[in-house]
Nucleic acid binder design. Structure first.
Lengths: 225, 225
DNA sequence: CTTCTACAATTAGAATTTTCATGGGGTAAA
DNA sequence: TTTACCCCATGAAAATTCTAATTGTAGAAG
C-alpha cells in the first residue's frame, strides 16, 4: 500500500509519515504543488493525503486534475479551513474524506484504513506462485500457508524475483531495485551473495516449490523446482 | 529491441546505456539534436529516451517532429525540469511517459519495459532458423524446443552467426563482436578455434539442422545441414 | 598424377581466470 | 542485548584461454 502525503508543514508531514509507516504502509511525501502533481502523475498511490493550503498552488486544483484522470477516489483532504464551502468543493471533486486540523493521528489512521478498505477489496496485495505467497502489505512470506520469517532485504529481493519469475534477473538490476542505484562500485556483489544464500536456505527449509537458480555469468532466475 | 538514448550528459548516457544493455536491448546513443534527428530519420527504434534539454536545440522540437512522422508513441521524456508545463507539452505531443532527473535506473528499466510491452507484443526477442531458436533475453538456445546449455562466449558467437546466416564470417569480425576490438595481436585465434569446436559439438549432439562450415583461409559460414 | 611444403585449422586437455557460495565476524541500528 | 546487514577470506565450480600435438588444405614442384 503506497500513500502520498502532500503537506508543506514539515513537522506535521513527518508526524503523519512515521505514524503511517508504523502501520507498514509505504510512504512518500511532497511539500509543494509541483512535486505533488509530478509524483501523482508518475506513480500509482492507494491513498493520497492532500493539504488544501499549499504554498505554490491550491490543493483543490490538484484534486481537480486527479478527478480528470479518474484517480480522485482515494484522496483525503486535510485543511485548516473548516468552512463548509471548501469542504463541499472537495467532495464535489470526488474526495473520499475530509479532515480538519488539528486532528488526532489515530483518527487519521482510521480514515486511511477506511479509504483503503473501501476502494480495494481490503487492499490485499499479494504475489503468488506455486506454494509460496508474498503479502506485500505486511511484508510476510507464506509457504504452504505457513509463515516464513524474512527480513527486509530478503523480502525485497524475493519480491523482485516474483515480479520477474522465470526470467533472467541480473545482479545489477537486483541491486538497483533493492538498494537504490548508489552501488558505487558495481564490482562487489558480496551482499547479494549473502542474501541469496539466506533466501535459498529459507526456501529450502520451508519446502517451497520454487528456487533461485544461478545463471552463470549473468545473474539469477526464479524457477519452479 | 533497439533503443535510442538522446542525452548530452556523458555519465548519465553511459549509465543508462549499460543498464539497458544488461537487459539485452541493443543501444544507440546521440548527444545532440542533429545526430539524434539524423538517427531517428534513418533507423527504426522500439523506444527512444529523450532528454528535453539538449545543447543545440530543444528536445520538444524533436518530439514534435516525431509526432509528425507518427513515431512518437515510443518516446520517454527525460528532464530536469519538473514543471507541469513542460510535462503537459510532452504528453500533448504524444510522448508515452515522462521521467524527471534524478531517477533510479530500475525505474527507467521498468518504464522501458512497459513501453515496449504496450507497443510491441511483449519484449521477447528471438532469432530463429530451422529448428534452432535463440532467446536474446534469457540468453538461451533451444533446438527442437529443447534447451541446450551455452556459456557466454558460445552464445555470443552463435548469435553473431545467426545474424549473418549463410554469409561469410571472418574470424576478425567474430573476434570484434564477441571479444571487443582489443585483439592485440590478431594472429592468434586459438580461443576461437576452441569455442567453435564446442559449439559444433553441441549443435551436432542436439541434432540441430544447421552447422558451422569452415571457409578455408577466410573464416566460417553458418549453413543448413 | 603424386609428393612436398608451408600454412591453416582442429582437437583434447592443461592452466588460468572469472564467477559464485559459504561461514564467520564486525558494526550499527532496533 | 539481539537482529539485520554487510564485508572478508576461503575455496569450489564453471568458463575461458593457452599449449602442444595432430590433421587438413592449396598450390607448387617433381
Amino acid at each position: 500500500m503506497k500513500i502520498l502525503i502532500v503537506e508543506d508543514e514539515v513537522g506535521l508531514r513527518e508526524a503523519i509519515g512515521s505514524s503511517l509507516e508504523k502501520e507498514s504502509y509505504r510512504i512518500e511525501t511532497a511539500s509543494d504543488f509541483d512535486t505533488a502533481s509530478e509524483k501523482i502523475f508518475l506513480y500509482e498511490y492507494d491513498c493520497i493525503l492532500l493539504d488544501i493550503m499549499l504554498p505554490d498552488g491550491n490543493g483543490l486544483e490538484l484534486l481537480a486534475e486527479l478527478k480528470k484522470q479518474g484517480k480522485s477516489e482515494n484522496v483525503i483532504i486535510i485543511s485548516a479551513k473548516n468552512t463548509l464551502d471548501d469542504k463541499l468543493k472537495g467532495l464535489e471533486l470526488g474526495a473520499d474524506d475530509y479532515l480538519t486540523k488539528p486532528f488526532h493521528l489515530a483518527e487519521l489512521n482510521a480514515r486511511v484504513k477506511a479509504v483503503l478498505r473501501r476502494n480495494k477489496l481490503d487492499g490485499k496485495e499479494v504475489v503468488e506462485w506455486k506454494n509460496v505467497r508474498l503479502d506485500l502489505n505486511d511484508r510476510q512470506l507464506f509457504v504452504n500457508n505457513q509463515e516464513v520469517q524474512l527480513n527486509r532485504k530478503e523480502f525485497d529481493i524475493l519480491n523482485y524475483f516474483l515480479l520477474n519469475q522465470q526470467r533472467l534477473v541480473t545482479r545489477v538490476a537486483l541491486a538497483e531495485y533493492v538498494w537504490g542505484d548508489h552501488m558505487d562500485q558495481a564490482d562487489n556483489f558480496d551482499f547479494i551473495y549473502s542474501q541469496i544464500k539466506n533466501i535459498r536456505k529459507k526456501l529450502k527449509e520451508s519446502a517451497a516449490e520454487i528456487e533461485i537458480e544461478t545463471v552463470y555469468g549473468l545473474g539469477y532466475k526464479l524457477v519452479r523446482i
